[in-house]
Write a protein that binds this DNA or RNA. Structure first.
Lengths: 235, 235
DNA sequence: ACCTGAACACCGTTCAAGT
DNA sequence: ACCTGAACACCGTTCAAGT
């Protein structure tokens, strides 16, 4: 049991910044990292590349952030600043939860690299906490208390990330010219030739607008989760 | 649009094996990879380490598998052979879906490295397809048709992976001595000091058996999803 | 206070060469 | 048919040294 001390950027004091005009800033580094992540994805982010982008050596970054993971923690929290902020008391718990779910999906789709970070690091940055607090208030308004409050929030969040992670993965493969969509379908068809029902279901997507289908898929599932939650309130 | 041809192990003929006593086999490589993955996790698997484990050079593996991703595809499909196989006609659609969900969670918890692969590669190996077919049959039995059949399956699967991915992540951090559980709680408490409700909820976990809580969390959410699906059948 | 370059211990993959 | 070693183009991180 040689358990290491757990740590996070959010509990360490950042290095004193003298805010001089020249030189690097932690903010600057995080912004550049976000640009690189949005443009090229999670795997493309390396300390060397990031340093080069900032006109500095890779190792210069280590004075401002402890390591790559902490840098990712900072970048990861940043995107949750884009979440919507409805007023639960005004729109009700269901619409608030729905706005939360849709906002979460939209945020991940806008920053696909974030999908690879979910769960890998605790979401305890200021923006993540604010978003989580909104959901919590909605569920309290609904009437959930104690453990059930957590379970309800977990169900909603789980549905969103469980839907969105594969969605992002599929997009990154099939879209943006990485792979030919037709050849992907062909591969699936060939591999699943023993399951004609599955292939038939796959063929049914041909010609449909994928974005619309994904949207309907999301709405359908979210409705199920929220209806199921509502039913539990009654009992 | 320089779209590459998409491919997968499951549509390539494996190399001829003469089944001589000596030398490497693809099966052997996959088995050794599974051992390494189960023992040390996804990040610990390198072609060099795997080669060494088999008493061969890292580059010898490349005659049997095209690359590391294809090797992971093979290993990933292997674990879905552990899924339960209830008879939908005997136990009904809801129990089948429930067994599917619990089996999926159990499989991922048994092979935590699999969590990092979900969505990263299409699940079109024989075991994955068989498992998917079971869920499909259950949903047809329930009465779902066409697109709704896909949406329903997606909702269930999304809930499972969305619940289990963070669960695995938390385990890998807090368990097995990697990090001290108390210090993790302390970090969360400190980072979230602006949200007393959140901290209070966290404190509520102290002293409880984590496995039991996780189980209840899962059952609660699954019930919601299934109830929500049932409701949609009525309309 | 901040940045640098060299160095360490790794990666996946290609490929000509061996048996 | 199968395996090898050298080589290429990368990684994250440490650390003594500079200014």
């Amino acid at each position: 049991m040689t358990s290491k001390q757990f740590t996070s950027v959010w509990v360490r004091e950042p290095r004193q910044s003298k805010a001089q005009g020249h030189g690097l800033t932690r903010d600057q580094i995080v912004r550049a990292a976000l640009e690189l992540l949005d443009a090229e994805g999670l795997e493309a982010l390396s300390m060397r590349k990031l340093g080069a982008r900032l006109g500095a050596g890779a190792t210069s970054l280590y004075w401002h952030v402890a390591n790559k993971d902490e840098l990712l923690e900072l970048a990861y929290d940043e995107i949750w600043g884009e979440m919507p902020v409805p007023d639960p008391d005004a729109v009700g718990w269901k619409d608030t939860a729905s706005a939360y779910a849709h906002g979460m999906r939209r945020t991940i789709l806008s920053h696909p690299w974030a999908a690879g970070l979910i769960g890998r690091m605790p979401a305890i940055g200021p923006n993540s906490l604010r978003a989580g607090d909104l959901l919590r208030r909605a569920l309290i308004l609904a009437g959930f208390r104690g453990m059930e409050q957590d379970y309800a929030g977990s169900a909603i969040t789980a549905f969103v990330i469980g839907t969105t992670i594969p969605e992002v993965a599929w997009r990154s493969l099939s879209q943006e010219g990485a792979y030919d969509a037709a050849s992907m379908r062909e591969v699936v068809r060939k591999a699943a030739s023993d399951y004609p029902d599955f292939v038939a279901r796959t063929d049914d997507y041909e010609g449909r607008d994928e974005r619309v289908v994904r949207e309907m898929n999301f709405d359908f599932g979210l409705l199920c989760v929220l209806d199921g939650l509502e039913k539990r309130l009654g009992s």
